[in-house]
Design a binder for these strands. Structure first.
Lengths: 160, 160
DNA sequence: TGCACAGGTAAGAATGATTCTCCGCAAAGA
DNA sequence: TCTTTGCGGAGAATCATTCTTACCTGTGCA
């Protein structure tokens, strides 16, 4: 099944160190915390949100450091910026593999969605079709909608 | 053919008036100019770019008015905000029909792309699949890539 | 151990984008 | 016409992000 990722599978310190090492970045306390927060926070956090969580564990970390660090993650390919239409805060995604986004119109949350079948479908479509004067590199589908909280249906209500 | 829209088909003043009227907005000189600029400018302009063009025709229009007006267009459903990852300026799209975007990684230009076949493909995919706990309303595909300027091939070069 | 060096960090100033406030004016309705 | 309402302009205010500066830490090396 390839339903929305549930981030959360809390990463071990070793995994974090490894990721930073692979990206060629020194593993400072601040960076480990920032990377961890990025992986753990739901809905693609803003710098502000990352900062909030990080200061909970090491209160001295400055917002400027969070910004600079997130940027360095982006250039190192560890992280990417997420395209969003509403709100003028930048959002970050720790997952750099190709994937798609479910954007909740109500809460502004952005949920990762990943399905190789869908990738294949889209890739195939453009491979067939070709675009005049444009060479596609990557695809990202934004699905706007609303969360449904498993409302009780008429039937399930009857069962009670 | 459903290749990228080429905006530009310059709208008549009557069409503009009509659009504003349909949206329930007063048709002031400023609004007409702003709407026209939005329709005419390529690549999904920022408020700043709209302002630049508008002041070319009516120099007194203030940037604040452009912002306010664009927002009112958005709430009226005349216009929408475009999701973009890079740069921290907000961009607007006068086209509210469902469509997709080609994002040029080099120039940051955002080109509209429209193809009912693609819509159908995506819609069909999710209709089959269904998303747990999420009700999709609309889909927008972001194709990141680079413009190809019809480079001369080995052959076409030989012809010269 | 002692010494430069590279890179990181915190703090706050600076910048840039967007929103807000306030006031005069023009348009729509009575 | 008189009134009410909304619109637009100017500039202040706010918010997000970047830059500057100075300090600090860990590292390599004599």
């Amino acid at each position: 099944m390839h339903t929305p990722h549930s981030h959360h599978p809390v990463p071990t310190p070793e995994q974090l160190q490894q990721q930073l090492a692979d990206a060629g970045l020194r593993a400072t306390r601040q960076r480990l915390l920032i990377l961890e927060s990025l992986l753990v926070l739901p809905g693609h956090p803003t710098a502000e949100q990352v900062h909030q969580r990080v200061t909970g564990q090491l209160s001295s970390v400055s917002l400027g450091t969070v910004y600079k660090t997130l940027d360095s993650f982006v250039v190192a390919g560890l992280t990417r910026r997420v395209a969003s239409a509403e709100g003028s805060r930048r959002r970050y995604d720790a997952d750099c593999t190709e994937h798609h986004h479910l954007v909740c119109a109500d809460t502004q949350e952005i949920i990762d969605y990943c399905d190789p079948k869908l990738d294949e479908l889209i890739r195939g479509f453009f491979a067939d079709k070709g675009l005049p004067g444009f060479q596609p590199h990557s695809f990202s589908l934004h699905v706007t909608g609303s969360r449904v909280v498993d409302l009780p249906t008429a039937e399930s209500a009857q069962q009670a």
